[in-house]
Design a protein around this nucleic acid. Structure first.
Lengths: 232, 232
DNA sequence: CGAAGGTTTGATGGTTGTCAAATGGTGTGG
DNA sequence: CCACACCATTTGACAACCATCAAACCTTCG
């Protein structure tokens, strides 16, 4: 299955940023598509690292099994985002990637990508920026986990999702959560009950509307205000 | 000031892994040295990103100022480790890097490094592995912050330091902490008092010896056992 | 030698985890 | 197409853990 980066409406979020026509076609040549049903895994921890994946449609989570056998979610990814970079360091993936809804990804074989990025400077730069962005993203999450209280974490989580929806042209004020309360909690270092309670509290305060997984942001400024509040 | 990667005893930890003689000299040509006194900053958040730095001697911390003006430590780095990769994504550094003791770094101008890594495949691969390792490292910290209790975090912190000391040929069982209790706490998402209490408790239990910043690991297996214990 | 900063230790309270039970949704197989 | 089972979510009561506030001690450095 072939797919054309040159035709893709997500190329501004993806590795293809800034490439000219000719280079786009070279990138096209190494990309194939793959479809996943909800619940299917794109790769598992321990799998040999062969490719990176650009999400075309759908929604993913990445997670790690801790020593004690507990699952910890390390990220939620949506269309236009790249996953799999964790595998480069040891030639094996360290986390699992699971589709949270029916999804489609572009498969980019890593050795070919490396080769092409030696030839195309713009691609090389974009690749490095993507990896660096992942580092910065992880560090923001560290700050969130290390210094924020439960409600702040959840407010930050909702605002982050909202902003990423907007960047993709979806509504920033209402959307379906693709993950469970437990997965949110795992991501934010909280228990599912705490997540549920915070949702209920925000609901009572008129900040958001909650109907199961359907969320409406009713007062974005109110949520942002929670972030600026000091520690209490 | 010139420095020879080909002569450096840390090259197996650094970007120079796997390079042959000729390539090592090309890397030499773009590297310069810089010395820092304790407390001096290598770069600050917001500074334009110009270079990555390999630590030759000394000890660093990286930190970020949160919205509320609180400092959050994102990492401690020692000889052989590379810092500055956070700056690639936006051409500006997002964190501060501060020497915690008198230190010396190799300055690697980024544009030259990028250029050279297009020519030397081994260098390119090593560079990517380093960035990926940083991503994986951040994710381990996320797990630690998201799912471990205070004592576990601190046990994990001590064991991690110990192991990195061993890898560098220093004693793994006794060393000086270069950072304060407050900095440890900030890194681990705890308050300094909690760090101090955990040290005291480990001390009372005969797991470690503590004299201010001088730490001895007396019972490494005992510390490791704390990590395997479930949530209690 | 004095001051400043780092560390230890104690007492107390707040936030979040734990356990438990009830409710609501979803999907499958009869 | 409905009934049932199963999973996700909500809510409450309680306990554990860690943060906070406070005071004393220790080290280091000017």
């Amino acid at each position: 299955m072939r797919v054309a980066c040159s035709q893709c409406n997500l190329r501004e979020l993806c590795l293809a940023v800034g490439l000219d026509e000719g280079d786009l076609h070279k990138l096209d040549d190494l990309v194939t598509k793959r479809k996943l049903k909800r619940g299917q895994q794109l790769y598992r921890a321990g799998d040999p690292f062969e490719a990176m994946y650009a999400i075309r449609t759908g929604f993913f989570k990445t997670d790690i099994l801790t020593e004690e056998g507990l699952e910890q979610v390390t990220g939620f990814q949506m269309a236009g985002e790249i996953i799999g970079m964790d595998g480069i360091s040891n030639d094996r993936h360290v986390c699992n990637a699971t589709a949270l809804e029916d999804s489609e990804v572009c498969v980019m074989p890593y050795d070919q990508l490396e080769e092409l990025s030696r030839k195309i400077q713009t691609l090389q730069q974009q690749f490095h920026k993507l990896m660096s962005r992942e580092i910065v993203r992880d560090q923001s999450l560290m700050i969130l986990l290390g210094s924020m209280r439960a409600e702040k974490r959840i407010a930050a989580f909702l605002l982050n999702l909202s902003q990423r929806m907007r960047m993709r042209g979806y509504s920033a004020s209402e959307f379906h959560l693709r993950m469970t309360r437990e997965e949110i909690g795992s991501y934010l270092g909280l228990k599912l009950e705490t997540v549920s309670r915070a949702f209920s509290k925000f609901h009572d305060e008129g900040l958001i509307g909650v109907q199961q997984k359907y969320i409406r942001i009713l007062n974005a400024d109110g949520l942002k205000a929670l972030l600026n509040h000091s520690t209490p």
